[in-house]
Design a protein around this nucleic acid. Structure first.
Length: 104
DNA sequence: AGCGCGGCTTTTC
DNA sequence: CGAAAAGCCGCGC
């Protein structure tokens, strides 16, 4: 498994997010001690060695926008999925003030 | 409120 | 080993 320590931590934290809530790349990066590694988090997530244990669709941008998924098409699809989980997605954006989950 | 620019870290070819 | 991309963030206009 070519899994770096960094990536492993990202998957760990992401899998910790309960259903009906979302987190941000910056938050994950910050929890690792690297607040500027927001991009690295996305890069690690895109590798996604365990798509079942790591619901990357629960990870959104700082402004609440659904990021990534290889393209805007995946965004709309995941946005709908998040709504089913209980997350209010508006125009492809999540209610950060109510569904933003944080570890600390 | 919307658009544009540079910067930080990790992964992959 | 070296370079480029990536699911970003913050600030300025």
């Amino acid at each position: 498994m070519t899994l770096s320590k960094f990536a492993a931590r990202v998957y760990q934290l992401t899998s910790e997010v309960p259903r009906g809530k979302v987190t941000t790349y910056g938050a994950i990066a910050s929890k690792m001690g690297k607040p500027g590694a927001s991009r690295a988090v996305g890069a690690a997530l895109k590798s996604n060695p365990t798509p079942i244990v790591v619901p990357c669709h629960r990870v959104v941008r700082t402004d609440g926008g659904l990021a990534g998924y290889g393209g805007p098409a995946g965004i709309g699809k995941k946005a709908k999925l998040l709504r089913e989980e209980g997350v209010a997605v508006r125009r492809g954006k999540v209610d950060m003030e109510k569904f933003l989950f944080t570890w600390r």
